[in-house]
């Protein structure tokens, strides 16, 4: 019964949604201090290439590769973050845009390492590696009534789901902590925040590096889910796509980019005829949202309204349905 319900097609789509959600979170973090980073596609590429190269050339376990990719993206985040902090909003956005492109050009030209535009293929696949591992341990997915490929994609989906939920949980917690309040203060008014004794350099670099790490992490996952990457995957268009998750969904609360990534990944899949006009629609969404609702679809008010509704329901039924957000 279970076996028939688990269709790798749906799991595949779900996996891409989860990766996009993580990317949406990555841009949200930097935006929560009022900085716009357009380098997240580049950081994603750093994470993806680092992890792919380490696992391909040194046979390291995937998890080590992913961690290394995440960390390296974070290091680049700090390196780029510290000097750029002297710059104001628009200038920062442009430097990050330039940085993303430089990263891409390096991937294209560093042929001995990255194979240039041809890309890296045969990257260890998260699900297939896991399948081999459990088979070595003497476990056969058929015990659960699963085909091999069903097991592979179910495993990927569950891992990504767990990871995504923990990332969201972590940043929701951080938002309510000292760090989160500092971020909010900086976003509202940098000078006022500074005069209140908040170390804005520290917090801005922190936010920038966190965003870079999360993007690098998503990139590393992307590499091991798709098993193939090329520089074109991390170009300007990817940066814009990530930006749209936040613009459409909203950047005030973490649920905004999460919703944006979810909706904008599902939409072209469900409405196949739309996929041809995908980028035109993206463009229109940005223009309209900026003019009409610059804070994005989901803002604090909507969230409060939903909370109110669910808490009322909770009183009635005594169960939480916050997952519906």
């Amino acid at each position: 019964m279970l076996a028939e319900l688990i269709n790798p097609y749906y799991l595949q789509v779900a996996s891409f949604i989860l990766i996009n959600i993580i990317l949406g979170v990555s841009i949200y973090i930097t935006l929560s201090t009022g900085q716009l980073s357009l380098a997240n596609a580049g950081f994603m590429g750093i994470g993806a290439y680092t992890s792919a190269l380490l696992t391909l050339n040194f046979d390291l376990p995937i998890i080590v590769g992913i961690m290394a990719g995440t960390l390296l993206a974070g290091v680049f985040g700090i390196l780029i973050g510290i000097p750029t902090l002297r710059l104001q909003g628009v200038y920062l956005a442009i430097v990050t845009l330039g940085f993303g492109e430089v990263i891409r050009v390096i991937f294209v030209n560093w042929e001995s390492m990255t194979k240039g535009a041809v890309g890296l293929s045969g990257i260890p696949h998260m699900g297939r590696e896991l399948l081999n591992t459990v088979k070595d341990l003497g476990f056969d997915p058929k015990v659960l009534g699963l085909q091999n490929n069903q097991f592979v994609f179910l495993a990927i989906f569950l891992i990504l789901l767990a990871v995504t939920v923990s990332i969201i949980a972590f940043f929701r917690r951080q938002n309510r902590s000292r760090v989160g309040r500092a971020f909010a203060a900086i976003k509202l008014d940098e000078k006022a925040a500074e005069s209140m004794g908040i170390n804005i350099t520290y917090y801005k670099v922190l936010a920038f590096a966190q965003g870079a790490m999360v993007a690098g992490f998503a990139g590393a996952l992307f590499a091991h889910v798709l098993a193939y990457i090329s520089p074109a995957d991390f170009a300007y268009h990817r940066a814009v796509e990530i930006l749209i998750f936040a613009v459409f969904g909203g950047s005030e609360v973490i649920w905004g980019p999460v919703f944006g990534a979810l909706f904008l990944t599902v939409m072209p899949e469900v409405l196949r005829f739309i996929s041809e006009y995908r980028y035109m629609i993206y463009g229109l969404i940005i223009i309209i949202m900026m003019a009409v609702r610059p804070q994005g679809l989901i803002d604090v008010n909507i969230l409060n309204w939903v909370k109110l509704k669910t808490s009322k329901r909770r009183q009635k039924h005594g169960t939480s349905s916050q997952k519906s957000m």
Binding site: N7, Q12, R272, E276
Partner: peptide, 20 residues
């Protein structure tokens, strides 16, 4: 099935064909 020239969409299309 359409892939729009993108790897991820080609993969989902393939999954659909093979499994659905």
């Amino acid at each position: 099935e359409d892939s729009a020239g993108k790897q991820d969409q080609a993969l989902t299309a393939a999954q659909k064909l093979m499994n659905s």
